[in-house]
Simulated assay, not measured.
Amino acid sequence: MAPILDLRGKRALVTSGTRGAGAATVRLFRDLGADVLTTARSRPDDVPERGFVAADLTTAEGCAAVATAVRDRLGGVDVVVHMLGGSSAPAGGFAALTDEEWRREIDLNLFPAVRLDRALLPGMIGQGRGVVVHVTSIQRLMPLPEATIAYAAAKAALSAYGKALSKEVSPKGVRVVRVAPGWIETEASVKLAERLAVEAGTDVEGGKRIIMASLGGIPLGRPSKPEEVANLIAFLASDLAASITGTEHVIDGGTVPTV
């Protein structure tokens, strides 16, 4: 029986594809037949050199280097997955966020997508086809004031940008969709659960429950797995989703409490 999902013949760029959901997406895309290029600031030992480019996407120079690598190595691109994102802002609410903290969050969570789209979309438009996936966050809908105000605002900006972009380029054959994860059980989040567990005098599962409680609960009872996020992205990037554009798809185990 032929596989339901098929990305054979697709040339794909997946940013931040060496850990977590990004690495899961790279693996799945390759398993489904895509030719994938991924990027991070440095290449881990377990990531093959082929299909990887080292770059700092928080800079204009880094984005330009990746766009050049896409053209040189892939000869163009059919799917771009903007996985890069995160937050390093300190706790303490709005008063703890300096101008530099705000710039850092925007440079990480918004500008890489804007710059890479600007460089790569003309080629997609020229070939009359393509898919852009912006990975946003449920925090654009339910920001946590203690530490992630700037992150949530940057992701909200990314979501609004993606919606506007879809209206401009969908008539030209390029679909633009958004994926909004909640808590994903990555290595980094497990380490956070372990640290919280030590502080609270409980075990790792107790630490996970602390994280879920901070989000107001997850009805599914667990975080999403990186592979589950990758599955959603692969579907949206495939021809099975050919009429889906301009929409945001939440994968959060039911965390967002509103319709």
Results as ranks from 00 to 15, higher is better:
M1I: 10
G33M: 02
G162V: 08
G182P: 02
S243T: 13
C63V: 06
L116C: 10
L220E: 15
R103S: 01
A119P: 09
P145F: 07
S166I: 05
G62R: 14
G123T: 09
P112I: 07
T59I: 12
V131E: 07
R115M: 04
E248Q: 11
V174D: 04
R175D: 03
A55V: 07
T59Q: 07
A69N: 06
R27K: 15
P48A: 02
P90Y: 02
G123M: 07
R222L: 00
T245L: 12
K163Y: 14
Y151Q: 07
W102E: 06
L37M: 02
S214H: 02
I106N: 10
V133D: 08
G22I: 05
A193P: 03
V26G: 14
S42P: 06
A154M: 08
A164V: 09
L97M: 00
I125M: 08
L32N: 01
K191V: 14
T245H: 09
P145C: 08
V169S: 01
A193S: 09
H249R: 05
L37F: 08
V177R: 00
G207W: 05
E146N: 13
F111T: 03
S243I: 08
G20L: 08
L121N: 00
R129S: 15
R73W: 06
A156F: 05
P226D: 03
S16T: 05
G86T: 01
A242V: 01
H82L: 06
G201R: 01
K225T: 05
I125C: 00
I251C: 01
A188I: 12
A64Q: 11
V259M: 14
F235P: 07
T136I: 10
G182I: 04
I125N: 10
C63T: 04
E61M: 03
A64I: 11
L84N: 09
D46L: 07
A157I: 00
D6G: 05
G85W: 08
E194A: 14
A154C: 09
N109D: 00
G130S: 02
S42K: 13
W183S: 12
I244G: 02
T247W: 02
V114F: 14
A40R: 09
V169H: 11
A40E: 08
E185W: 13
A21F: 14
I233T: 04
A34N: 04
T25F: 11
V177M: 10
L141W: 13
R103C: 06
E194L: 10
G221F: 05
L236I: 11
T18I: 03
P223A: 14
G216K: 06
Y151G: 06
A230Y: 14
L74D: 01
E100T: 13
G162Q: 01
R27T: 14
R140G: 02
A55G: 10
G75F: 15
L7T: 05
R175W: 05
I251L: 10
E227Y: 00
L13C: 13
M83L: 02
D45V: 13
R104W: 06
A21L: 14
I138E: 12
V204N: 13
R19T: 13
I106T: 12
V135E: 03
S87N: 15
